[in-house]
Amino acid sequence: MSAAAPGTETGSDTGSTTAPGAERPAPGRWTPGRTAAALLLPGLVALLLTYAMPLVWVARMAFNEPLPGGAIRQTLTLGTFADVLTDGHYWRVIWQTVELGALVTVFTLLLSYPLALFLARTTTRWRGLLIALAVTPLLISSVARTFGWMAILGNQGVVNKTLQSVGIIDTPLQLANNLTGVVIASTEIYMPFAILVMISGFGRLDPELERAAASLGAGRLAVLRRVVLPLTLPGVLTAGLLVFVLSLSGYVTPRLIGGGRVFVLATEIYDEAITALNWPVAAVLSMLLLVLFGLVIVVYTRLQRFVERRILGERGAAS
């Protein structure tokens, strides 16, 4: 880490500014504000050390110049940014990352919504158990689950073997080692997150409202479309945000089941850093991924506000 020096400097600067309360222990009086500041301090220091400093270091690395053979010239240049942004390959990688995120988000939401709706509305005494069941996949690492999907989707996998033995297909379907496999596996892997977020986001859902709508003559579809769907939309949006962001930064599934054909930012950053030893390009790609996250958050906030205002009307009216 040859760029550690600027990182540490910035680190200590920020360190002295984040905690004015603790730096100057005033004689005698402890105001609530000071106590709060002191209580925040350990968390802030931990964040600074584990998050902010490495991030600053990566940002600094993005302005260095990569030399052939993995060497790095310490400098301040925008050259690496220019090289990456004028290279069609990296635009394709960014596009594929977004495409994968969008596909996975749509499928995850479509499959999770009915489950979450059922779990949120059911009054059975098994509800707790059912929710636990929906979330249990999270107890298994996504590496193991991806390998599970490879055993299912591969050429020698359950799906192809079954279809072949029944005589529906002659040659195996290419379900793994490509984008299809990554979308299928990622969708299943992110579903528990989506279900959890949706259930907790469905607070506005109230059976009384559905009954009221029905009593006013709305059919089941109309109730779903005009009452249930709008009320659950904020939860769906938050789940969508979470899944999209997880998928943008996802590494394990594209790497293991993508067959080396699915180029996304996370795998590309790893390859640049580990195989090509091109740390400046890896750092630039990391910065681009951060920008992408920022854009997603902006879009999400806009959408959320739109839903609150236009579809649900005033908060008071909806609840």
Partner: peptide, 21 residues
């Protein structure tokens, strides 16, 4: 008490810094 809490919080962050160094 708030003061004791604040002091231990300060100590904890000091320890964090030290271990990281």
């Amino acid at each position: 008490r708030p003061r004791a809490l604040a002091v231990s919080a300060g100590l904890l962050s000091g320890a964090l810094l030290l271990t990281s160094c």
